[in-house]
Nucleic acid binder design. Structure first.
Lengths: 146, 146
DNA sequence: ATTTATGCAAATCGTTTGCAAACCT
DNA sequence: AGGTTTGCAAACGATTTGCATAAAT
């Protein structure tokens, strides 16, 4: 099973929600697909200057509703966005720098991840929660800020 | 070892940073200590009407700098605050409702927590990160919103 | 042709800040 | 007294939104 093309997956997810896969949206996905870490909206429009700020914001909302991207908020004043796992095939977690706000990806060993899933499932059940996903962040000083 | 008095710990932490433990600050700690979940600033000033909004915000910043409270941001538009573990003696994680934004506390079994710590330590090392703490959130629909 | 998306500029809203008065030690 | 903290109102800044135009089907 090869890694899917993010554009194909995005287009399909959008179509399901009766949404078009316009040029702006393609450009947005392209930027996120070629990024190596979650980006802020400013960073996104910097990399693709044809995108108006409001268009970026609006489409990111649509993307989130369709499960195409995830919005990540840390303590930083800027939210960050990344493609959903359906577009990247890579379950991961985040290192968050408490000083500069940068976010990096990491993974944990599969067995631990499964153990975590099991434990969280129990928690959800006992709280009457309908679990959607989990987040595991490691907060600290990044190499440049320590 | 008994659970410490949050006021004593807060006062001590503040003193270390040459900060006073004023009436406003005591009231703020009292509200957080009697809450059963992280609160937004609005919720805080609702419960203690003597607190001006700006005073609450300003003191929460001071508290955070002194390690007295933690600021929690989810996807919600309001940040939430809770006492640091030094004041509560209770390491826990958060259930976050993706609809209403409410945050609830939960714990995982000790062995899993320790395994997690070990794994995160390795991650931090490999990234040259100076780890401060970790966060584990379970995101979904709470019992009232599902 | 009709519906949906875009861009600009203005509005929103949580949070921050300037400044004079109140407070603490 | 002398430096801090507080409260009010004004400022800020990231995000959202109204509306007229452009794009997509």
């Amino acid at each position: 099973m090869a890694t899917p093309d993010p554009h194909d997956v995005a287009a399909a997810l959008l179509r399901t929600a009766d949404q078009r896969y316009t040029r702006s949206r393609q450009a947005l996905i392209e930027v996120l697909a070629t990024a190596d870490a979650p980006l802020t909206v400013d960073e996104i429009v910097d990399r693709e200057q044809s995108l108006a700020l409001s268009t970026a914001y609006r489409n990111l909302v649509v993307f989130e509703e369709c499960g195409v991207v995830h919005r990540i908020v840390t303590s930083d004043e800027h939210a960050r966005y990344e493609l959903d796992e359906a577009l990247t095939d890579r379950h991961h977690h985040h290192l968050v720098c408490s000083r500069c706000g940068v976010v990096l990806d990491f993974t944990v060993p599969d067995p631990l991840e499964r153990e975590l899933d099991r434990a969280l499932e129990q928690v959800a059940t006992s709280f009457g929660f309908d679990a959607e996903h989990h987040r595991l962040d490691l907060v600290g000083r990044c190499a440049s800020c320590r």
